[in-house]
Amino acid sequence: MWSSEPPAAASPLTRARVRAAWAFVTPMLAVLALVAGWPLLRTVWLGFTDAELAGMGDATWVGLDNYRILVGDGTWWRAVGNTVWFTVVSVALETVLGLAIALVLAAPFPGRGLARAAVLVPWAIPTIVSAKMWGWMLHDQFGLINDALLGLGLIAEPVAWTADPDLALWAVIAVDVWKTTPFMALLLLAALQMRPRECYEAARVDGIHPVVVFFRVTLPLIRPALVVAVVFRALDALRVFDLIYVLTSNSEATMSMSVYARQQLIDFQDAGVGSAAATLLFLVVAVFTVITIMAGRLDITEGAR
């Protein structure tokens, strides 16, 4: 709880403090307005113009034309579908796997510190590097994955994991799961370690089956941390760019909304359509954020008190 709320009649000292507070906040706010507020407003505006990348200054207003182009573009809808599918599947897999890993690492065993450190390795590796590493392991001719699967007799001939349109998105999902499950596992592990012991002792005395204990005791106890972790991961997944751009470049089979927007903006120099696509992605993320805050009753202002 915040303990030094200002008294009803503000003393000169309090007023001086409030003035100082604003002076302390202003530089940060000015920078944030410059690098976040202004570019966002410009992007929204450019989405209603025929702007080209070179010379965005002489853009003229074209109303909803860019949005009409998007609605009629199959590639855009493919990108929307890919983004949603990627988000749902990868976050679901990461949650289940992350929870499983967290439960294992919560058990006491010698060398637990080392195991936890090992789990942090994928998180520490830059996304670009992990995309390249997996691109090499998934290589159709010389890759380790094909070699191992052929050796085990699971496939009859090498598979083009990142080039086959039916498999490429699954390859992207697999790499993302490898890269971000540790983050999930560690957040959940932190929550698991704050569980009160008493609930479990009571359950053990009553001889309740461990699976029942998991669903009736463990899950409800870590629910708040679980919801936050899932929301954060989902927000991250919706804006995915690096991994897809490096693993499969501009392939339509895996293109996300971010990749589409950047391709329009930079490769096709069409700042109008690119900005409109970026604005739509922003709206999707904003709506998702508002819905989860309301549905999960995530009290964000809790942190502000």
Binding site: L40, A261, V285
Partner: peptide, 20 residues
């Protein structure tokens, strides 16, 4: 508002940032 900025997809500011 600070928290909501951290939710911004980077692409959402890309053209404005490029211009800036």
């Amino acid at each position: 508002s600070i928290l909501s900025v951290s939710m911004f997809p980077q692409v959402a500011v890309l053209s404005g940032m490029f211009e800036l």
